[in-house]
């Protein structure tokens, strides 16, 4: 199961197609995003996790590998902590969910467009490879990212039992690498891997390395 980031669902992205070549991939669009129905009664992060628990129970009926990017990583980590029986292996990619007082994150809703571009991409030309968010997406994201993208995940990280890989773009200006290290430090046995030449979207900017790392990790289990 791949859970997308705060901007938008990646659509038929190359990395998803490559992962799907050797395994079944479910890549739902979050409630309130794009064509999805409104978040409605899903008030908080637990509701959101239960939404995906229901999806996995009904569509798969057993444990899945969970890969989450950005906001999706925050939800994936919560899913792993709350639904250990449904989580086989966990991959967190440039994930939100923590807050480090001595390294405050930029505000993704206020940052100037030029700075946002520089924060997201190692090479600004790669911006064209990511679909633009549609109206309503960011509103849905504010449920978990506003005003600080933290909903208590650090207290629950010790409950993650699945083998975990934390992947991070070396040049992510939205979420510095230190956040990946903190995530990995909070989960027993987690590995942390930094991908060079990538910003916030390593699966786009360093697709080969990303796919190799994810497949290698999932296939090892």
């Amino acid at each position: 199961m791949f859970l997308h980031g705060y901007d938008t669902h990646p659509g038929e992205a190359g990395f998803l197609a490559r992962l799907a070549a050797g395994r079944r991939v479910i890549a739902p669009e979050h409630p309130g995003y794009g064509e999805s129905s409104a978040a409605g009664p899903l008030h908080d992060i637990v509701d959101q996790v239960l939404h995906y628990r229901l999806m996995v129970e009904q569509w798969v009926g057993g444990p899945v590998d969970v890969v989450g990017h950005c906001l999706g990583g925050m939800i994936a980590a919560e899913f792993a902590a709350l639904c250990p029986h449904l989580t086989r292996r966990l991959v967190l990619v440039d994930s939100y969910g923590l807050w480090l007082d001595d390294m405050p994150l930029p505000d993704p809703f206020v940052i100037r467009p030029a700075d946002l571009l520089a924060a997201k991409f190692a090479d600004s030309a790669d911006a064209a490879k990511v679909p633009a968010p549609v109206m309503g997406n960011h509103a849905a994201a504010t449920r978990f990212l506003w005003p600080i993208p933290e909903r208590g995940l650090s207290r629950r990280l010790p409950f993650v039992q699945a083998p975990t890989l934390v992947l991070h773009g070396a040049q992510d200006g939205l979420i510095p690498v230190a956040y990946a290290e903190a995530l990995a430090a909070g989960i027993a046995g987690a590995q942390c891997m930094v991908l060079p030449g990538a910003g916030h979207f390593p699966m786009i900017e360093a697709e080969d390395a990303f796919v190799a790392a994810v497949e290698g990790f999932l296939d090892a289990g």
């Binding site: 978040a39 206020v110 509103a139 849905a140 504010t142 449920r143 506003w146 005003p147 600080i148």
Partner: peptide
């Protein structure tokens, strides 16, 4: 409301 007082806009 949503910046100075931090209320999530959708709430």
């Amino acid at each position: 409301s949503v910046f100075a007082y931090g209320m999530p806009p959708v709430e």
